[in-house]
Write a protein that binds this DNA or RNA. Structure first.
Length: 245
DNA sequence: CCATGTACCTGAAGGC
DNA sequence: TGCCTTCAGGTACATG
């Protein structure tokens, strides 16, 4: 599932390959990321905006398959494939992408948030902390995999109410968000299922996962079996001993 | 404000 | 072998 680290990886890889290339009547000027969305900025203020949802892929110089929804062709003969097995993902060709409701509705990027923003936001929210981390209006970029990994790193029970986190726990959470996301970017993301980077390669972060999809396995730290519960319809993995507060 | 349910979609996995 | 059910997940939207 392309979350922030996966989209960041695709963005970095595409930047190296497509900036300056011509597509249709436009040139590619820049590639950016907002939360989980990828933006290919073109000349004349136009943009291609993508949300890959769960199974979307953007593959440079890929080979078409049954899940290929769109082939973008550049004038030098290279191409960019948009694949999506489950068809939840989308792309739009727009003018002024900053004005899109999907972009305007995003909270600050998880890599850029300030500790104070987190502290103030948590204080006035009664929802479970895991649910809040997934709320793109509050913080953008974190999905189900990294929410679980971040909360394990911070040793916080995902069911705990946001407003009940202690001062120290919020500090830990803030540090964990940055640490886990940066490390995942270094590994080019996590290929839990369908994710591939822009060169069609799997991400390597999965081997660093401590709780996600580890139900019933011994905790990395204390050997207690990892538990799975549902929080707001999302499967949530955590260690009942390490994350007990 | 918060939680829950439903819809979108496909393929894998498990039960019988 | 094969049919049926369940599950996975990001987000919008409707409903308690």
């Amino acid at each position: 599932m392309p979350e922030l680290p996966e989209v960041e990886t695709i963005k970095n890889q595409l930047k190296e390959k497509i900036i300056g290339k011509k597509i249709g009547k436009f040139f590619v000027k820049e590639v950016e990321r907002r939360g989980k969305m990828l933006i290919i900025k073109l000349t004349k203020q136009k943009s291609l905006v993508f949300h890959l949802k769960m199974t979307g892929q953007l593959i440079y110089q890929g080979t078409k398959n049954k899940h290929t929804r769109k082939v973008f062709k550049f004038n030098d003969g290279s191409c960019l494939l948009f694949n999506d097995l489950r068809k939840f993902g989308w792309f739009k060709f727009v003018k002024d992408f900053e004005e899109m409701k999907e972009i305007k509705g995003l909270g600050p990027d998880a890599l850029l948030i300030k500790e104070k923003y987190l502290r103030d936001g948590l204080q006035r929210r009664k929802t479970k902390i895991k649910a809040l981390l997934l709320d793109q209006k509050f913080i953008s970029g974190i999905g189900n995999i990294y929410a679980d990994e971040i909360l394990f790193e911070a040793r916080i029970d995902p069911r705990k109410r946001a407003s009940n986190l202690t001062f120290f726990e919020i500090s830990s959470l803030y540090e964990a968000i940055k640490k886990i996301l940066k490390k995942a970017i270094q590994q080019r993301g996590s290929s839990a299922k369908d994710y591939l980077d822009a060169f069609g390669k799997e991400g390597a972060y999965l081997e660093f996962h401590k709780v996600y999809q580890k139900t019933g396995k011994p905790c990395f730290v204390c050997k207690t079996n990892i538990q799975r519960v549902k929080i707001n319809q999302r499967s949530t993995h955590f260690c009942p001993t390490c994350q007990n507060n």
